[in-house]
Amino acid sequence: MSEPLIDIKNVSKEFGGGLFSRLAPFKAVSDISLSVARNQTMGIVGESGSGKSTLLRMVLRLIQPTSGEITINGQNVWALKGGQLKAFRRQVQPVFQNPASSFNPRHSIQSILTAPLEVHGIGTPAERRDRAVELLERVGLDPAMRHRLPHQFSGGQKQRIAIARAVILGPTVVLADEPTSALDVSVQAQVLKLFSDIKDDLGLTTIFVSHNLAVIRQVSDRVAVMQHGRLVEEGPVDDIFDNPGNDYTRNLIAAVPDPAFARRNRAGTAVHPVSPA
């Protein structure tokens, strides 16, 4: 692997257990080390409570780790201050599960898209508008709709807008937390395709968190499996899925209902194997 762009070293996060708490602290993430090479997608998969979102939020600098170090491009994420922090906020962008709740419902799509540019003092108002138009086209939306409000868009369209907003500042890293979980499969397929295309075009390094193993398999280069805050295993996506080295991963994969099941296991069985009681 080439020089890692994102490097997570022995990171842990405990919640609760403060000075006056009678309860032991809850370890949401314990001692995780992972690195993501430039232009690669790391998929993080796990069930609810596995700590996958907490880990992502620590990389986003939204939740402070209890211990350990996270570096992006050699810089310790949690040591950044002032101008460096501002630069980090340009370089690292999130895409969340529910775009509806990450947009201001009273702002037009245009002002949602241009806001990051304004915050970072980039371009004149006209240039910012042009950039918003350009990105709307890039994500497959009609720029004429840019004066509409978020609620006037479907879930898939909103997620396209969220992707446009994530890349409008020209970031190097995009961190996505279950970006397609709320979408219908046909829409999910389109959004995943868009995500991969944009990632390739812009040479992004991404972490993609999901509970959906099939989605993870489709988008990731490498995959990390988490359970109860621990890293169960990590490796190239095909290796992990085809030859899981761990019982938990094996069970997780076996539990996924798969459309291919019908092709593989049902072929040749009786047309109707049901006998009424």
Partner: peptide, 14 residues
Amino acid sequence: DATPSIHGPRDEVP
């Protein structure tokens, strides 16, 4: 076609 498979891309499914 739209449903991602855990066995990788659809055309690779035996």
